[in-house]
Design a protein around this nucleic acid. Sequence first.
DNA 1: ATGTCAAATAATATCGATATTTTGAGGAGA
DNA 2: TCTCCTCAAAATATCGATATTATTTGACAT
Lengths: 221, 221
Amino acid sequence: MDAMLDTEGKETSATHGAYRRLRAMILTGELPPGQKLKIEQLRGLLDTGASPVREALSLLTSDMLVERIDQRGFRAAPVSKCNFEEILLLRCNLEETALRASIANADSAWEDRLVLRHYHMKKAGQKGAHDFEDAHKAFHMALLDNARLPLLLRYCSQLYDLNIRYRYLAAGVSSYKKRDINAEHQEILDAALDRDAEGAKRHLLDHYRRTGEYLSSQMES
Amino acid sequence: MDAMLDTEGKETSATHGAYRRLRAMILTGELPPGQKLKIEQLRGLLDTGASPVREALSLLTSDMLVERIDQRGFRAAPVSKCNFEEILLLRCNLEETALRASIANADSAWEDRLVLRHYHMKKAGQKGAHDFEDAHKAFHMALLDNARLPLLLRYCSQLYDLNIRYRYLAAGVSSYKKRDINAEHQEILDAALDRDAEGAKRHLLDHYRRTGEYLSSQMES
DNA sequence: ATGTCAAATAATATCGATATTTTGAGGAGA
DNA sequence: TCTCCTCAAAATATCGATATTATTTGACAT
């Protein structure tokens, strides 16, 4: 009998809502690396109870976006060049494995999915849409998810998120899009559709390493 | 002024205590795969409040030992041959990377650590000590931790735990120790001390694959 | 006899409050 | 003047209770 105030009604549970919002704030840098995350402060910011905030922070700990310190609460995960380079290294390693397995399982349903994801990403990119990030991730995950290796996919997804956090922190998404990544994505897509594992892997890793060099160069802080 | 009842006093926080105990119960199979984990039931079992139990389950979700279902609570992660094989695959991939990086950074301090861990493991194994598992994991992690890649190490540790869960579920620890793993460990250690990356990797992966075949054969259920 | 709907039951998710721990400041002693 | 101890203030961790949500039971209609 609480008057059904949730007219927006998007979130199923307060915990999940807090999780998504905090996650977005950390990924975009709105909550800067290393910042102390006080329950009370966040409780006010998200206007919800302390329990959902606390549980959301716990969940973010698994994603390595939040660190828990002894009995002293939580803080946003710190960043470092070392950490960034490790993320890049692991992504190259794991995504190569996943991509090869995906291509090994290739079928026409997967090809259809790839083409669609790529199309949606291009469309979102042209409109400068807010959901380009989501479409971009969906395309990259679609490249990998035909491997049918859920643990591996989970790790790739985690590392992907950690990486775009660095992209946001370095310069925001705009400068990233200045480079012609359309051509790079097209190359990856074409190779995957040709079931050319070696070529797809090369294009994909080049794609990541190029972004990596760009970000690394901006990170002399 | 609560009379200082915690004479055992090992646990720093109720949450962490609940986490460790639940983790152990899931790894050993005391809480079988797929079982519904009701808060009330666990609250009684660990005699603590509902909040620590809830938070511990959240943390275990990150370790992929517990699954969260919609708004219907938690359950112990299910097992399958597929899942086991994926764990084995990822371990081989990730541990090879970590081991090579560890050896590339080799120094005498690391060698000392390795020798000590190996000695402790052997000692615990001879006595049939309860803490053989801990020593075994410590040795394997010591092989990898000189890579100084914390994310990678974390993944390896997670996968290690998921793997010993299958070992417990298949037969308990006893039958595993029947095989002569001492020789295998010695080969790995010697190759690592020789800074022979290729040999160490071969012995390590053989070690895992042999265990994997043994467990796979027992898993026609 | 069976399928469907509704009420009862059980479990979860959330809230408000308390107790414990940590942090910081200020004062006493060296 | 510096160090260490004590006390106050703030934040966290935990508990008990409530409201919300799912599940089951049972009755009724088909």
